[in-house]
Amino acid sequence: MTRIPQNWSLKEQNRQAAKQQQRLFDRAGCLVIELLGSPGCGKTSLQEATLPALDRCGVLNGDMASDRDIQRLKPFCGWAIQIETGNRCHLSASDWGVLSASELAMVDWVFVENVGNLVCPAAFPMGAHRRVLLVSTPEGHDKFTKYPTAIAAADLVVISKMELAPYVDFDADFARESIHSIKPHLPVLELSVRQQTGLEAWMIWLYLQRSKHCQSEVVP
């Protein structure tokens, strides 16, 4: 028997697929923001509040079934595409195959809403420039320590439905501490789409990412 060392890596495979995808986005000049979070955390509502304030947007939405979210978001963007994943629990880089180069050229912003799930999507980068984790206050301030992979993958945490915080005993300080025990310095925003609070900070974050991306990260 002979032992032959190997260097295949799952992470590297996923990273390569995501990177290849990101090059297409960069060539088309669009910034891709991925939203991760459990079912009902407010991913679609946040987009309903965001898209009308932005020009030239596209939306890709993953759900196990139905085109409900796309129907909600269509009025606010250039194109909105639903991927029904069937039994798959997450989107992957290959799902971008549904998009044509001309569709990418139409937009400056792409929002990807991954399947509502805090486990699998975190492990499969799709090539988004930024990954945003949404957790709503009714899910509980202790949710973060239970799903560390999602935090580790995120560039920003948005705590949504802040208007419900007093009714569900949501402790925002505890939440921040747990987030930072997994990923120190990770930015955290608190907002309420219903009461229209905290949305300015979210929009500023988005524009900041856009300018950072335009300045430094474009891959030729």
């Binding site: 028997m1 992470k11 580790a152």
Partner: peptide, 13 residues
């Protein structure tokens, strides 16, 4: 610690 890697293969001569 966050990856899955194929480290080696044992092959018959």
């Amino acid at each position: 610690g966050d990856d899955v890697q194929l480290a080696y293969l044992e092959v018959d001569e």
